[in-house]
């Protein structure tokens, strides 16, 4: 690791101020991506501003049809939360399947969403559930938030405070995890809400998480595995790497979507 200065922020405003003044400073939440990145010398920040313990970024709350989770909430706490399990069980289940236990004990919701790793699980939930990303400056709709691989609408120094998930009627998430890392080779989150049905795909898109429009249209007429089985996902915009070709991943997306649809139709 290159040398940097570590500082534990005492408040969200202090953290935002430090980050605004120093463009090479970086916020540190759980550090499950940032620390490995630093260890490989792929980044050289001047300062790390630790925001993980800030009370403003904590809390899980469900009221008026919206589940709100603080950005610094750890995956293990989302998974174990009775509030989340009751409100959106698919989200608790997703959190329980991220990485491994040690990663879930450190990694945070806000960190994962801000990083927008193309194979991370949370972006699929945020996009499918049509969540709002509440930052230190504004509220950003999920459709506007994710802007490509590792790219989001966040401006320098802007921090995610919490994420507000409108409660769906039903939701399901299925992923094919990479056997070593647990990252999604393909992950599909389907959420059915009063104002429509959304299908978000992670792990596969060449530009990160995306909505699969054809699947949304097919399922809008009735949720069934058969509705997905008729579809073909074009492989053109699918990611290809040593773990799988784009055609293989496109097929995995379809299989995961079929499973998620089956889980959802079984629940109804």
């Amino acid at each position: 690791m290159y040398a940097f200065q570590y500082r534990r922020a005492k408040s969200l405003s202090e953290a935002a101020e430090v980050l605004a003044k120093d463009e090479d400073a970086r916020p540190l939440s759980g550090g499950m991506t940032l620390i490995p990145t630093l260890k490989q010398r792929l980044a050289q920040p001047t300062q790390l501003v630790d925001i993980a313990g800030l009370p403003e970024l904590g809390g899980i709350d469900c009221r008026n049809g919206v589940l709100t989770i603080g950005a610094a909430t750890r995956h293990a706490d989302v998974a174990a939360s009775k509030v989340v399990q009751d409100a959106i069980p698919a989200l608790a289940c997703l959190a329980a399947g991220i990485g491994d236990p040690q990663v879930r004990n450190r990694g945070t919701l806000g960190g994962s969403v801000a990083n927008n790793d193309p194979a991370a699980d949370y972006p699929a939930a945020v996009l499918a559930l049509n969540a709002k990303v509440v930052t230190t400056k504004r509220e950003i709709a999920a459709d506007d938030f994710f802007q490509g691989m590792f790219t989001t609408a966040l401006e320098p120094g802007e921090l995610i405070v919490k994420i507000a998930f409108p409660l769906p009627k039903a939701a399901a998430y299925c992923k094919f995890p990479h056997p070593a890392s647990g990252y999604a080779m393909a992950g599909v989150f389907i959420a059915q809400a009063g104002d429509g049905l959304r299908v978000a795909v992670t792990g596969a898109g060449a530009s990160g998480v995306f909505r699969w429009a054809e699947a949304e249209q097919a399922l809008a007429k009735g949720i069934s595995a058969a509705a997905i089985e008729k579809l073909t996902l074009a492989a053109d915009d699918i990611n290809e790497d040593i773990h799988g070709t784009r055609e293989y991943r496109a097929q995995l997306v379809k299989v995961m979507a079929t499973r998620a649809a089956a889980a959802l139709s079984g629940k109804k």
Binding site: Y6, R8, L28, G31, M32, I35, P36, L48, D50, A52, A76, D100, P101, Q102, V103, N105, R106
Partner: peptide, 21 residues
Amino acid sequence: GACTVHVDGRAVKSCTMLAAQ
């Protein structure tokens, strides 16, 4: 995970956490 320790009662990988944290 060979470096796993408990921090405030939770298992974490101590190679992926700063001492300062």
